[in-house]
Write a protein that binds this DNA or RNA. Sequence first.
DNA 1: TTGTACGCGTTATCAC
DNA 2: GTGATAACGCGTACAA
Lengths: 336, 336
Amino acid sequence: MSAKITIKEVAKKAGVAAMTVSRVLNRSGYVSEDARSRVESAVAELGYVPNQLARGLRSKRTGTIALVVTDITNPFFTTMARGVEDAASDTSNLVLFCNTDENEAEEQRYMRLLIEKRVDGVLLVPAQAGQQSLELAKTHGVPVVVVDRAVSGQEVDVVRCDSRDGATRLADLLLIKGHQHFAVLAGHHGVSTTDDRVEAFVTAVKQSNPSNSIEVHYGDFSVRSGHENAKKILNAEPRPTAVFAANNFISIGALQEFRQQGISVPEDIALVGFDDLPAALVTFPFLTVVAQPAYEMGRRAVEQLFKRIENPEASPEEILLPTEIIVRASSGNGLK
Amino acid sequence: MSAKITIKEVAKKAGVAAMTVSRVLNRSGYVSEDARSRVESAVAELGYVPNQLARGLRSKRTGTIALVVTDITNPFFTTMARGVEDAASDTSNLVLFCNTDENEAEEQRYMRLLIEKRVDGVLLVPAQAGQQSLELAKTHGVPVVVVDRAVSGQEVDVVRCDSRDGATRLADLLLIKGHQHFAVLAGHHGVSTTDDRVEAFVTAVKQSNPSNSIEVHYGDFSVRSGHENAKKILNAEPRPTAVFAANNFISIGALQEFRQQGISVPEDIALVGFDDLPAALVTFPFLTVVAQPAYEMGRRAVEQLFKRIENPEASPEEILLPTEIIVRASSGNGLK
DNA sequence: TTGTACGCGTTATCAC
DNA sequence: GTGATAACGCGTACAA
């Protein structure tokens, strides 16, 4: 247990000043070849590892960013997290991850902890409006990039997909197949992805034919919510023939509920949703979905964060990534 | 953009010394009610957030731990990560996550970065033997708890499941159904979970009847590996009637391959494996598996890490968590 | 109960 | 090219 080696001991061993060691390590300033090689061997011999705490205290850079999501357990966010970590790793940055469970108080608690840690920046999937957390970050000069969801009235970079467009395409798909009675299994009211998807879907359905019926059930982005709201649909009159689930977990919950009740998809009811399941997790690709490029979203968000860190004064950007509609069995062949 | 507030400014505003502010914040030492309340309002008014870098530099505690896994994208590790984060969050600790992709060089690179950051401890799923990383950590006095996999010849805490026991139970299940020709789709040779599972399975099969046939195909814990090795099985002579996949991804790869080739599971071939898929991700629970308590493993590992941090001299413990065998359709009803 | 001096390990600054 | 010095923001040790 070599007592902790500091830069001074390396300096002494190499016969130079601490400052010279620092210059070698950071490739800053001029150092003679001779001194450089002596420092390098001293570092190797002593097994010296610089202390990032001290470094960060002076240089205001910690080499750490944070990813705040609602639940890493959702494969959409897991994939995003992998993209984030890969991109961060390219520049030797490390990533802290936080789960808010869609809870604003938790989000703010984490934000405070992250500010304490002096992270270089934060990637935030806002639990809801995100106002308070964003203010907090701004007050303390911590760069933030919002991911996946939009926020209103905030000057901040956003990397996300166009939920309206995706929802519209799913609606069109179902309308072409002749459906007239729809249901939407939505997430939390007030979250941009929920509101955008619901609004676009409803609009498309109503524009196609004002006498189409459509019921919207809010809940949250969970399997349980999918179950509960699917149950309500089955008792509705007229019973919807096509259902739009606002995310992957809701789709799965609904599918499970339908199966339990002996309702066949797509024969008895068509089902479409947002967010594809990773190919590695699924043996029957079955659900018709709008797939969002989660991995790419993670990478792009990191790139944008680094740009923001480099240039804090640039005006905020909103980056919209393309989605892809993948038609599979669950949307059916249309009404008979 | 309040310039950065320090403890001194809080002190001045409250009319006390910085030290008193520190005492209030850390609830250490005596502080009069009067001073305390003045400090508290000053903190609130200024929106002061302590600097963990400076704090950690003095106190040798950063409130950060790390989780090093092979791939967060594997739901087994995702679930574990959630357990880790929840447990860490209970005591306001933050978690750094790293993906090694089963690569030892990457593992060591991360370990060095984590030492630089002076994390309080590391939870490590060793890519392979883990020797070098563990030595590195020991040299620098960083506590480590090994998770999911065993390591040999190292004095270190380990939290994992009994792979031998699980593999044996799966073998017994298949043997009772009358199978005589087996195949194992294994992971990397040299990883304890691979070796334990293979060895226990082979032993059980051979002990039951020495004339049973069994072929073992090594690869890695990926869907691709499942595909490739499943292909080899189908060409074998005699063709195995029962297959044991060493983890969830291999199971899925094999299942996909069988389906593509028109082979029915379990009618044509029985399939069992390690690691259940989260209920939230699956609409047909189909695979017969040995399920490991990933979430619990994450929590326990954190607890053990904190114990180790508290008491670095205690002798290392190996904690074995129970597994559960879940019998579903994929193991079939036995040979006709 | 409160305050002062000092040091944690590093880098920015300015001299040589 | 290189080094001495101060400073980053806080907590430990001790004194008052």
